[in-house]
C-alpha cells in the first residue's frame, strides 16, 4: 500500500544577517546550508497495518508525513502510496486519504463544527446517505454531540482533536495519517483518542500511520514501530523486538533486614545502594531465580522485586545515540 525507497528531503537553510551589506552579499553569493530533515529512508506498509512513527522533536516525522500526504515534493527517492505518487496527482490522491496534523485544524475557525463537516461533504463529494451514517457513528464514538454546534475556535484541545478526527474520516479514506494526535492532551483524553484510533483500524481496516514522541501511544496502539532521528530510520519492526534488541539490562531491587556485608553476586552488579535497599543490574538472559537463591543463602531479605527496563528508558537510550551502533 505504501512504498518508500531512499526517500530524502533536504531543506536549504539561509543564514540571515542583520547587516544590510551582508544581505546584499548573501544575495549574490548564496550563504546557506543544507538540513537533511529526512535522510535516505526506505520502508513499506501493508494494507490494514497500524504503524507508529517515533522520534524526538525535530527528528523528521512531520516532514516524512508531509511527503506521504503530497504536501512536500521529495528532494530525491521514490514514493508511492495506493498507486499514486502523492505530489504528482495531488487532487486525485488526497481524496483517498485522511490526515490530521495535530497542531493544526482542518475546521473552519468561526463556523459551528457541524457546518465545517458539511463543507467537507461538498469538497469530498460524499453521498448524503454515507455522510449521515458516518456522522451518526462518529457522534457516538467520539461524543461529538456536546460541541457540534460550537465554532472550532471555542473547542478545547481534546474536543478539537475529536472533531478533526471525525473530519478526516467522513469520506472513508483508505489510509489515515496522524501527526502527533495526542500532543498536549491529558491522560483521559489521550486514552479516548487511542481507543478510537484502534477501533477505526479494526472495524474499517483503515491503514493508519501515526507519529508521536509519546511512547505510550505506540505501546498501546501499534504492533509495528519505526524510529527516526536526525532524519535517519533507526529501527523498523515489532515493538517487542525493539525491547529485545536495545532493551539492555533488567534490575533487581532488594530490601535487606540488616546492612549486608560481603555482598557479591556472580551475574549482577550493584548500581545503587541506599540504607537497606540495594539495586542490582543484570543481563536479560540471566535467570532471576538463581540470583535470588544466591542472595537468600547468605542474607536475611525483607522484600525484593524485579524491574523490566521501561520502554521509555530504552527509547531514551536509543535517542541518546548510545545503542545506535549496537
Amino acid at each position: 500500500m505504501i512504498q518508500v525507497e531512499n526517500l530524502c528531503k533536504h531543506f536549504e537553510i539561509r543564514h540571515r544577517h542583520k547587516n544590510s551589506w551582508a544581505v546584499l552579499r548573501n544575495f549574490l553569493k548564496r550563504d546557506s546550508s543544507t538540513l537533511k530533515a529526512v535522510d535516505d529512508i526506505s520502508f513499506s506498509i501493508q494494507k490494514g497495518e497500524m504503524v507508529g512513527y517515533l522520534g524526538p522533536n525535530g527528528a523528521g516525522k512531520s516532514t516524512t508525513l508531509k511527503m506521504l500526504t503530497g504536501l512536500l515534493v521529495p528532494t530525491s527517492g521514490r514514493l508511492e502510496v495506493n498507486g499514486f505518487v502523492p505530489w504528482q496527482s495531488r487532487q486525485k490522491y488526497v481524496a483517498q486519504i485522511g490526515a490530521v496534523f495535530g497542531q493544526r485544524s482542518s475546521l473552519w475557525w468561526d463556523l459551528p463544527t457541524i457546518e465545517s463537516l458539511e463543507l467537507l461533504q461538498h469538497i469530498y463529494k460524499i453521498p448524503t446517505a454515507r455522510f449521515s451514517s458516518n456522522l451518526e457513528m462518529f457522534k457516538k464514538l467520539l461524543d461529538l454531540d456536546e460541541f457540534l454546534q460550537s465554532p472550532a475556535r471555542s473547542l478545547s484541545l481534546g474536543q478539537r482533536m475529536r472533531a478533526d478526527l471525525c473530519a478526516a474520516l467522513m469520506h472513508d479514506p483508505a489510509i489515515l495519517f496522524l501527526d502527533e494526535p495526542t500532543i498536549g492532551l491529558d491522560v483521559v483524553a489521550k486514552q479516548r483518542i487511542r481507543e478510537f484510533i484502534q477501533q477505526i483500524n479494526q472495524d474499517r481496516g483503515t491503514t493508519i500511520i501515526l507519529t508521536t514522541h509519546d511512547m505510550a501511544d505506540v505501546q498501546k496502539l501499534c504492533t509495528r514501530a519505526m524510529m527516526i532521528d536526525h532524519g535517519k530510520l533507526l529501527f523498523d519492526g515489532a515493538l517487542s523486538d525493539l525491547q529485545n534488541r536495545f532493551g539492555g539490562q533488567r534490575r533487581l531491587i532488594v530490601d535487606f533486614e540488616e546492612p549486608p556485608t560481603q555482598l557479591k553476586l556472580a551475574n549482577a552488579t550493584i548500581i545503587s545502594q541506599e540504607a537497606l535497599r540495594i539495586t542490582f543490574a543484570f543481563a536479560r538472559e540471566t535467570r532471576v531465580a538463581e540470583l535470588i537463591s544466591a542472595l537468600t543463602r547468605d542474607h536475611a531479605i525483607r522484600d525484593l522485586r524485579v524491574e523490566e527496563p521501561e520502554i521509555e528508558a530504552t527509547i531514551r537510550a536509543i535517542y541518546e545515540g548510545n545503542l545506535l551502533s549496537a
Binding site: 508531509k66 504536501l71 486525485k92 488526497v94 497542531q103 469538497i123
Partner: peptide, 14 residues
C-alpha cells in the same frame, strides 16, 4: 504560517 495552505492542499479541490 498557520498551515491553512497545507489544509487546502490536503483537500481534493482546486
Amino acid at each position: 504560517r498557520k498551515g491553512t495552505l497545507d489544509q487546502f492542499l490536503l483537500r481534493p479541490a482546486n
